[in-house]
Amino acid sequence: MSLYFLCLVLFSVGLYCILRKRNLIKIIIGIAITEYAVNLFFVLVGYKMHGRAPIHAEDQAILNMVDPLPQALVLTAIVIGLAITALIASIAIRVYEKYGTFDITKIRKLKG
């Protein structure tokens, strides 16, 4: 229970960063932090107490394994998160080249 709540606090720190900061790089950092919190929450829900990693071996002393399904889903989500971060960072670099700033309140005006 307290682990779930700490995970939620980590999520809300990232949400605060997205909502309140005006720097584009800070917004990217907030998106990355929320993504970490969601991935960690999935794996937390699938954890079995005193379980072992879901890999078969010759000498299995412990028989119950943790849930492998959230781990497979999160493995996909981590890689997609990298692609998202790369795309946003490249757009931020282009915005900096065009406007000369990362501040989102100063890049509102359109330039031809």
Binding site: I28, Q71, V74, V79, L82, T85, A89
Partner: peptide, 20 residues
């Protein structure tokens, strides 16, 4: 108990830091 995820997260984290 998720070693595959630990490896993937390590590599992805280093790449994210380099990109940022």
């Amino acid at each position: 108990k998720a070693p595959d995820l630990a490896i993937a997260q390590l590599v992805v984290e280093i790449l994210v830091v380099i990109i940022l």
